[in-house]
Design a protein around this nucleic acid. Structure first.
Lengths: 221, 221
DNA sequence: CCCTGTACCTACTCACGAGTAGGCTACGGG
DNA sequence: CCCGTAGCCTACTCGTGAGTAGGTACAGGG
């Protein structure tokens, strides 16, 4: 090997923790942009500012790295939503706060959202399992909300059986609307959340008659 | 090369049209199962019962092949929906028939649906453009429906601006519910369509009060 | 029976990217 | 000043899969 070549020798040595964080940040960015398969470890190492063997040393193989990204971003999203919801509130307010927290997160962390929604769900491997598990958790959460709301107001049993499906539809509507929102960033997150809240709570039949849902607490703006 | 080897020599010669159809069928199946990147041309040629150069001769490169799949399956879906909707009906009935046709299609062509929803939307290349264009067409269709419904009943202008977003949410809800349905095939397509119709037309607030939407025409059940 | 074209094949090349071997450099302790 | 170790690198191997070269079998016209 060319021993006499004048290398910069300027590599700053950093503790493992920091490097891992840098690598994960870069990976989320690259996976979000190109997708799992089209993303190369070389590009990730470039963006992270380290060499490829560092990634293997710290985060393992490509699958492990992707899984680590999913895990980190997913728990950030779940934490964000959980932080917005208070268990004491009535169902419609819980749903409202959950939707608001969700859209706030998506607006602030577009890349996180892309890697979760676009990439993870479409990869067949062990990722989608992990990711779909989180998605199922969200659906179960909404389902519980709907069931609680329905039974407390005496909805009949037959209709109650459909709440899981409705929860899946609601989660899908949120995801789709989040994607739409990425193309229309001029709309405030609160407005988008309000649209969806009205659609699912009031229904379009009510909306065209001018019956809208508004949060019980007065909101500024 | 072993010239004396006893090959079957039983390859049935078929006209180009038939082979192209076979190849497209196989491609949809393999793409649906493994995704675009994990699907290999070798496996597609295997499933199709032809050799790889045939695919290249008839359908071109991998991207072209995938695009051809998307195009064929997408137009089948659109035709199916268009065939179910009659322009003369009131908006809610149009939506109802559209939803029914959609879920009927998904139920009958699960692989087509998978390749459209899961694979095409998550690939960054020229596919997603084509596919998203079709999706936008669906959203525009629903949007027109909502606008027509809203203006005919005097909805105010401000709310009308949100119909495009609501249409996106509705399309997403349909997609997500279709995915949920793949895991619960015991539910009839009509029932699933009914759930979604009620959610988006009546809203959950109405549903828990027992206000449900039913088609105007009596349906055998 | 030869000639031409079309359907179809086997068996290859080659690029790309995951993963690795092995070495260099900074720093702290003896 | 020497050594051990941990952070970090360059420069490779090698499998995989897209795409191709070039050939074989069958059909029909002369």
């Amino acid at each position: 090997m060319s021993v006499d070549e004048r290398r910069p020798t300027k590599v700053k040595r950093l503790p493992r923790e920091v490097r891992e964080r840098q690598i994960l940040d870069a990976a989320v960015r690259v996976f979000s942009e190109h997708g799992y398969h089209n993303a190369s470890m070389d590009e990730i190492s470039d963006v992270a500012g380290v060499s490829k063997p560092m990634i293997y040393a710290y985060l393992g193989h490509k699958e492990d790295l992707f899984a680590a990204c999913i895990r980190r971003e997913a728990s950030m999203l779940i934490e964000a939503i959980a932080a917005g919801v208070e268990a004491e509130l009535p169902p419609d307010m819980q749903l409202w706060h959950g939707l608001r927290a969700f859209f706030r997160f998506v607006g602030a962390q577009k890349e996180s959202w892309r890697v979760l929604h676009r990439q993870a769900t479409s990869q067949g491997g062990p990722f989608s399992e992990e990711l779909l598990a989180m998605r199922d958790r969200a659906i179960a959460l909404v389902d519980a909300l709907l069931v609680r709301s329905a039974t407390s107001r005496g909805m009949d049993e037959a209709a109650t059986k459909s709440t899981e499906a409705l929860a899946a539809a609601l989660v899908g509507a949120s995801e789709s609307l989040a994607d739409w929102w990425l193309d229309h960033p001029e709309v405030p997150d609160k407005v988008v959340a309000g649209w969806l809240m009205n659609l699912v709570w009031m229904g379009f039949g009510d909306l065209v008659d001018g019956h809208v849902w508004t949060p019980a607490t007065p909101t500024a703006g």
